[in-house]
Amino acid sequence: MRISTTQLWVHDQDEALAFWTDKVGMEVREDVTMPEMGNFRWLTIGPPGQDDIAVVLMAIPGPPMMDEATTQQLADLMGKGWAGTMFLTTDDVRAAHARLSAAGVEFTETPEERPYGIDAGFRDPSGNSIRLTQLIAAPVG
């Protein structure tokens, strides 16, 4: 088995798409609206050069799929950064931090040395927590 698709909940798919493509540098994998499903929009992005993985930018559904109370709970968790986390790796986290910051990504944590590598954090417009990490080789043995 392999992971092919995962998802992040988003408040606004257009805003999320602009953030992930224009600021972070992801590319669109699929953007399909299905009128027969109440105009449900299947929107996926992924990192260039990694065609075997996609991230669904999933709008929070309302009734009948999700009741209003659950919709609000999910929106509240997203605002706190607890509804989704994505871990991104790079060969140079400081250079990626500089590039993303220049593109308008606001970091919640700047690059810092950790036992596993160099790590930084930011949130997307929906509040999802994103970790950006430059991993170091783990000792063998």
Rank of each mutant, 00 (worst) to 15 (best):
2 R>M: 11
2 R>V: 03
4 S>M: 10
7 Q>C: 09
7 Q>Y: 14
9 W>D: 04
9 W>E: 04
9 W>A: 13
10 V>G: 04
11 H>I: 06
11 H>T: 11
13 Q>D: 08
14 D>S: 12
16 A>T: 13
16 A>S: 14
17 L>F: 10
19 F>N: 11
21 T>F: 09
22 D>H: 01
23 K>W: 05
24 V>R: 02
25 G>N: 05
26 M>C: 14
27 E>L: 12
29 R>L: 15
29 R>P: 04
30 E>H: 15
31 D>M: 03
31 D>R: 00
33 T>V: 08
35 P>Y: 03
36 E>S: 08
37 M>D: 02
37 M>C: 05
39 N>T: 03
39 N>W: 01
40 F>T: 08
40 F>L: 13
42 W>Q: 06
43 L>N: 01
44 T>K: 01
47 P>S: 13
48 P>I: 03
49 G>W: 03
50 Q>P: 04
51 D>R: 06
52 D>A: 13
54 A>M: 14
54 A>K: 08
54 A>E: 14
54 A>N: 10
54 A>L: 07
54 A>F: 07
57 L>Y: 10
58 M>L: 14
59 A>D: 07
60 I>Q: 00
65 M>V: 08
65 M>S: 04
65 M>D: 05
68 E>R: 11
69 A>D: 02
71 T>F: 01
72 Q>K: 09
73 Q>H: 03
73 Q>F: 07
75 A>D: 00
75 A>M: 08
76 D>T: 08
77 L>S: 07
77 L>F: 05
79 G>H: 09
79 G>W: 01
79 G>V: 01
79 G>R: 03
80 K>G: 05
80 K>R: 12
81 G>Y: 02
83 A>S: 00
84 G>A: 04
84 G>Y: 02
84 G>F: 07
87 F>D: 13
87 F>E: 11
92 D>N: 15
92 D>V: 11
93 V>Q: 14
94 R>C: 00
94 R>H: 12
96 A>R: 15
98 A>S: 15
99 R>G: 11
100 L>A: 12
100 L>W: 13
100 L>Q: 08
101 S>C: 09
102 A>Y: 09
102 A>S: 15
103 A>G: 10
103 A>N: 15
104 G>K: 01
104 G>L: 12
107 F>M: 01
107 F>P: 08
110 T>A: 15
113 E>I: 07
113 E>C: 07
114 R>W: 10
116 Y>P: 01
120 A>G: 02
121 G>S: 07
121 G>H: 06
123 R>A: 11
124 D>S: 00
125 P>H: 08
127 G>C: 07
128 N>Q: 05
129 S>R: 11
129 S>A: 12
131 R>N: 03
133 T>S: 14
133 T>G: 09
134 Q>S: 03
136 I>F: 10
136 I>D: 10
136 I>Y: 08
137 A>P: 08
137 A>G: 09
138 A>H: 06
139 P>Y: 03
140 V>N: 09
140 V>Q: 10
